[in-house]
C-alpha cells in the first residue's frame, strides 16, 4: 500500500478541522516550492504556557490534510518552547512515515505549528 494506515486514518477522518473561536492566534502558511499550492490556516489556544488546542483549515493534497490532522493531535500539551522546535519528521512519525513526494506536506504542517507557536511566545 502506498500510504500507512495512520496516514489513511488521518486523511479520511481528519481531527480538529475548523475555526477556533477562542483562539489566541491565527496564522496562514503556504508551500513555496515548485508545483504545489498547499496552504494551511492554523488556530491555537494556549493554556498555562502549553498548546491547549489546535484547529486548522487546509487546501491541499491528501498528505497535507493527513499531516495537519496528525500535527493538531501532536501539538496538544506541548510547551510553546517545544512547539517551536517541531519538525516535519516529527509529523511524519505520527503518520507512520510518508513517501518522499509527501515530504512537503509534513514540512508544511510542522511549519504551521512552529509559526503559530513562535507568535504565541512573543
Amino acid at each position: 500500500m502506498l500510504y500507512s494506515p495512520q496516514y489513511m486514518r488521518h486523511f479520511q477522518t481528519p481531527a480538529n478541522i475548523g475555526d477556533l473561536e477562542e483562539a489566541d492566534a491565527v496564522e496562514d502558511v503556504h508551500y513555496t516550492g515548485q508545483g504545489c499550492f498547499d496552504r494551511i490556516r492554523i488556530f491555537a489556544k494556549v493554556d498555562d504556557g502549553k498548546i491547549g488546542k489546535v484547529t486548522y483549515r487546509v487546501r491541499g493534497c491528501s498528505g497535507t490534510i493527513a499531516a495537519c490532522s496528525a500535527m493538531s493531535e501532536l501539538a496538544v500539551g506541548l510547551p510553546l518552547e517545544q512547539a517551536v522546535q517541531i519538525q516535519g519528521e516529527d509529523v511524519a512519525t505520527e503518520l507512520g512515515g510518508v513517501p518522499d513526494r509527501k515530504r512537503h506536506s509534513v514540512d508544511l504542517a510542522a511549519e504551521a505549528l512552529r509559526t503559530i507557536a513562535l507568535k504565541l511566545t512573543k
Binding site: 486523511f11 504545489c36 499550492f37 498547499d38 491541499g60 493534497c61 491528501s62 498528505g63 490534510i65 513526494r101
Partner: peptide, 22 residues
C-alpha cells in the same frame, strides 16, 4: 486539490487520474 479526490477514489476502489503535481 485533485490528488485528495483521487485518494478518496482509490480508497473506494475507483481509479481515475489527474495532471495534479502531487
Amino acid at each position: 486539490e485533485s490528488e485528495a479526490l483521487l485518494t478518496h477514489f482509490d480508497q473506494a476502489g475507483i481509479y481515475a487520474s489527474s495532471g495534479s503535481p502531487c
